[in-house]
Amino acid sequence: MDQVIIVSFVLSVMTASTPLLLAATGELVTEKSGVLNLGVEGMMLVGAIVGFATTVHTGSSLLGVLAALLAGMAMSLIFAILTLTFLANQVATGLALTIFGTGLSALVGASYVGTAVEALPRVLFGQDALVYLALVTLFVVAWFLRRSHRGLVLRAIGDSHDAAHAIGYPVILIRYLATLFGGAMCGLAGAYMSLAYATSWAENMTAGRGWIAVALVVFATWRPIWLLVGAYLFGGIMYGSLAIQAAGAINLFGYPLVVPSQLVSALPYLATIVVLVVISRDRARIRLNAPACLGRPFHAAG
């Protein structure tokens, strides 16, 4: 293959995988603290429209990205208050957050459909800063969880909140922080969708990427470096499915094979199922790596 084609392939895969990587890194930190936030899709959508609207009005993509980050945090704050303070069921609250975020982004975004913004400025190898931010954040998170004392505390709280509480760690406070970090990252992931990937807004534009990000955390069995593998794998699948649709047919030993575009579009979702099955069938590995308190509410007596 031509070198240029390879380079452009790699860069395209990076682009497609960046929102997954951003959101999944945030969700991984949240889940490591023992909180299961299934509202990733909703937080991404709100981040996408808030970032987009801010950029349109201020003309500054930097402000847009910041606003998206704050919007994601605000969404995750709702989740944190409900599940950590009011002890609501985390699965149900996550679903509510997605339903709410889908509606809110559609309402705010109604007047922006058809508007376009300039893509985020490119900083290196034709990629924008968020692409590199996603990578840097991932490695910082990997270091933080593995090497730093605070990361150890976060893991400990996800492992046994009762023991952590007995030693004297502020379980709820740390879970709030981990949840807010997850929200911020989902906001960034949304901003990447609207400001860099599509440079426009469309209702439901994340198209399940939030859920795929949640699945990626399982795929990585909660290990950050594997998240990178997963995100690039899915970025590749998404890019591939777009490329096939653009070409209209697959070249099969010289014979063009016409595949319905819907089947090609379904590939990332089907791949997610396959990947989940492959990882989950090893129950022992899931149990050993999953934070033992994932999804369980904590209420300190006294």
Binding site: L87, A88, A96, L97, F100, G103, A106, E203
Partner: peptide, 26 residues
């Protein structure tokens, strides 16, 4: 009003419901 308002109200209703449900056990 855009139709999306419905989704927002539905989400908010579920939020409030989940929050109020804490009063069942506490």
């Amino acid at each position: 009003m855009p139709n999306a308002v419905t989704g927002i109200f539905q989400g908010i209703l579920l939020f409030f419901l989940l929050a109020c449900d804490v009063l069942i056990l506490y």
